[in-house]
Design a protein around this nucleic acid. Sequence first.
DNA 1: CCAAGTATCCAAAACGTTTTGAATAAAAAG
DNA 2: CTTTTTATTCAAAACGTTTTGGATACTTGG
Lengths: 342, 342
Amino acid sequence: MVKLKDLARELNVSITTVSRALNGFSDVNEETRARVSAAAERLGYRPNMNARRLVTGRAHTIGLANPSESSLIHEAHIAEFLSGIGEALSESEYDLLLIPYKQNDEIERYKRAIASNRVDALIVGSIFLNDPRIDFLHKVGMPFVVHGRTETALPYAFIDIDNESVGYKSAIALLDKGHRRIGLLNGPADMTFARDRELGYRRALAERGIAFDSALTDNAMMADAHGFAATQRFFALKKPATALIAGSMANAIGAIRAIRTAGLMMGKHVSLIAHDDIFHFLKPESMVPTLTTTTSSMRAAGHRAAEMAIRLLDGEPVENLQQVWDVELNERESVGPAPDQG
Amino acid sequence: MVKLKDLARELNVSITTVSRALNGFSDVNEETRARVSAAAERLGYRPNMNARRLVTGRAHTIGLANPSESSLIHEAHIAEFLSGIGEALSESEYDLLLIPYKQNDEIERYKRAIASNRVDALIVGSIFLNDPRIDFLHKVGMPFVVHGRTETALPYAFIDIDNESVGYKSAIALLDKGHRRIGLLNGPADMTFARDRELGYRRALAERGIAFDSALTDNAMMADAHGFAATQRFFALKKPATALIAGSMANAIGAIRAIRTAGLMMGKHVSLIAHDDIFHFLKPESMVPTLTTTTSSMRAAGHRAAEMAIRLLDGEPVENLQQVWDVELNERESVGPAPDQG
DNA sequence: CCAAGTATCCAAAACGTTTTGAATAAAAAG
DNA sequence: CTTTTTATTCAAAACGTTTTGGATACTTGG
């Protein structure tokens, strides 16, 4: 492995000069810099990252906690989010450290990563309404970016989508078609995004003077099987649901199966709107019938989160690093007028 | 941040003693060790990983290349595999570095990570029949574990499932039920696992004296939409398929939609066997009808790959680190006798 | 021609560990 | 009582960078 010393000897200059030449300092002659760069290129020099980390005190690494076990988050979401982060980081020569944790291990793992100087900043996801991680990271002074939001008075950087609007727009679109019994296949009740979506859903109902019925909401991990079960429950009510809002493509698939199993037709007997986080392997526009969705890119969120982390490290104040993305509704065939309720 | 020097001063011993006490060397008095440990605990000492890395020359980190863009691999596979790796690594105090790459950037990214001392070993996945990465890593002498296999004379550590058997067992199960026209929804032709599955599928056909028909195989990214399209193609043949083998749950979902769209019933008019890599959010046993699958855990593979990487670094010879896991067939309702071909 | 600036280079210190080789004291062996 | 062994400790070097604070030589301005 070629190091600074080797280059210095080769070129008959000091280690300092080599270092400063490669790092673009102005106090080195351009001709010298050219010679150094050429030699570095020729000999394939790459700075030893660990030496650099030690002396600068910066790991040049962003950390992301990753659940080792079953998670509340669909696997595909994590992977898309990760890719987005990776995309942004590789543009900036930052590293991405995955911090595996199990059950309630997360803060302990954070502590370890922070104290041992492994990371300069963290990206935290899967946020709860009252998430202890925010307080903790604040207390220890570790820079972090949140994917989502939580209830706290502390200022923090975040990227989130307008989940209230997801619930609202979906419900309004269905109400506009005459639906009055709309089932909400939502995420876990203690997660912020799920709470927000229900808030939007309720606001839409209230605007149209329709009473909220808790029998028409389901809070669970957004999985295929849960979507199926909850939909069947909504259909079994005295006044069954004629429309559904699914929190993700995962439970939408379960809902669709329940619809078909009940012998109903999507877009005719039952309408469905799902939230789509955009996967390569499951596209609402190629389903039969095509699926009406609210859309937001998990990958883009990861990208933005990573960008924010870097800007945070560059000294950007937290107040400038708070974004809520709007979500658009893509109307397709799975939504139709409410059937006559005879 | 408390360091060795602080502990040493606090305890009136040398830095050396503190270091050796904490690292379990036998040449330190047990009473001293106890005092040191207590102080370390009390002051919250954590070794600076970067200093340790610099002096030992070991990054104590395993790397995994992660596609920044659309991938041939379903997002959920990546996440499950990652979790498995994380599980194993956190047990061993190893770090996991994600190495993002785009398009044909992969080897360049490997070079960077290796030369800058960021990783001690790599885990490589998404393997092709002739994969240049194996030769490269061999050449530069970087330890690595392959998830899958490739065609090379070089010895290398790998964990793989018996994909030939996946194809064979699935086909035999369908042939046993009288099916003669079996569509194969396979992965990309240049990927080893897909080649192997086709080999097994062909062997089964050959055993039963049935001619291979290339119109009944599809090679593509294993996505929902492709499963749908290929299944429709198989149904449109003069002699349509009465059974299907899907390479993943992703294209199985597309296949199921095509079956329903054609007005057919799964397990009655058409039989389906899918390969299931085990996700929390899509379970074959909770589908309607339940889905017959070959099963192998992506997570377990990740776990094992990471274990192997560590054993490799501990000096275990490559020959002891080559495993092929058997795959079992789980019979459920999606397979039934071949319908009368009139 | 001198003073002050400017451009260019470098030796040495520092980052926080691990490890080597030796030093000391106490115990055991002769 | 001397020598050898054993247990315990430590000072110093090393890892490969970055950064500080000069040093040198050359320009420029007066």
